[in-house]
């Protein structure tokens, strides 16, 4: 493929011939990852650190906790609380429904051919987020959406009269589920595949019912994965800005929308408050993801 074959001793030149090169070798080897590290520093870690450090600084300089304390206003508190609520509920529902669908496809109950289209569709739907997703739901259950109109005109049910409004917390949750459920299916299916048939059979032969097997073996084995998925889905929803903005404009007071407004127009009247707001978001997603990573490591240790 490349050049003429040469005698094998040519490779020897790549070995360090003198002790001096031996000393330099580890440093030279690092050169290979320098571009990556520089990129990560400049465009990932640096900007984030700048924000986090800014959250603990005064406008004139000097360290302080003032900004964090100043976040404790009803409006900001409410924004975080609504964000956490939406993220948690959509993550929880996403986990439950995604798990049920994946379990149906993997563990029998459903024919084999269901599995592949389900996974393909999940790949598409989990990436169909942001602005167009909001449009799809507006066109369906928005004020003039397909289902809304159908219910009103053909069945005489006025969703609005029942207090349903897509541009609200439940509306946002329903919309988020469109990418939460598929994401759950994508990450829990390998875990369900990891449940070995022999475990179920061993439990059965020892007298266990299907339910006992699930309670004593399968669910404990899956538990770290399930909790980890919950954390991942939570972080996924918590950082979602585009869907929320496209769906509600800026009418809904949630953390990412508040931050968006702050970046555009300093609505909080102090740039350092913006840093603090962003840092709060990182802290929350970081906790969620740490939970995910720790739990995944634990389940992998079992299943080796």
């Amino acid at each position: 493929m490349v050049g003429r074959p040469r005698s094998p001793h040519v490779t020897d030149t790549s070995l360090p011939p003198s002790p001096r090169r031996n000393v330099l070798a580890p440093i030279l080897r690092m050169v290979g990852v320098v571009p990556f590290l520089v990129f990560a520093l400049l465009f990932l870690i640096g900007p984030t650190l700048y924000i986090v450090l800014g959250a603990f600084q005064r406008t004139g300089g000097g360290w302080t906790l003032e900004n964090i304390v100043a976040l404790n206003t009803p409006s900001v508190r409410n924004a975080y609380w609504v964000s956490i609520k939406i993220s948690f509920i959509s993550a929880l529902l996403g986990c439950l429904i995604g798990f049920a669908m994946s379990a149906g496809a993997v563990l029998g109950g459903l024919p084999k051919w269901v599995r592949s289209p389900l996974l393909t569709f999940s790949g598409v739907a989990s990436n169909f987020a942001g602005v167009p997703l909001a449009f799809a739901f507006l066109a369906t259950i928005g004020p003039a959406g397909l289902i809304t109109m159908w219910l009103r005109q053909d069945l005489g049910i006025n969703l609005r009269a029942y207090g349903f409004n897509l541009l609200s917390t439940p509306g946002l949750i329903i919309t988020y589920l469109f990418f939460q459920i598929p994401l759950m299916i994508l990450i829990i299916t390998p875990a369900l595949d990891g449940l070995r048939r022999e475990w179920r059979e061993a439990a059965m032969v020892l007298g266990a019912t299907g339910w006992q097997y699930w309670r004593m073996v399968a669910l404990p084995i899956l538990f770290p994965s399930l909790l980890g998925c919950l954390a991942l889905l939570f972080a996924n929803a918590f950082g979602a800005v585009a869907t929320a903005i496209a769906l509600t404009g800026s009418s809904l007071n949630i953390a990412p929308i508040l931050l968006y407004a702050q970046i555009r127009g300093d609505v909080l009247g102090n740039p350092h408050l913006g840093y603090a707001l962003a840092t709060g978001m990182i802290a929350i997603t970081a906790v969620a993801n740490t939970v995910y990573i720790v739990l995944r490591a634990r389940s992998e240790r079992w299943l080796r």
Partner: peptide, 27 residues
């Protein structure tokens, strides 16, 4: 070094995009 690199590559899942771009604008 792989675990460290891998950790860095996973950071964008933890840090919301809006925060990263916020940092860009300031930095």
């Amino acid at each position: 070094i792989r675990p460290y690199i891998e950790f860095i590559t996973l950071l964008p899942l933890v840090i919301p995009a809006i925060v990263i771009v916020f940092g860009y604008i300031r930095l």
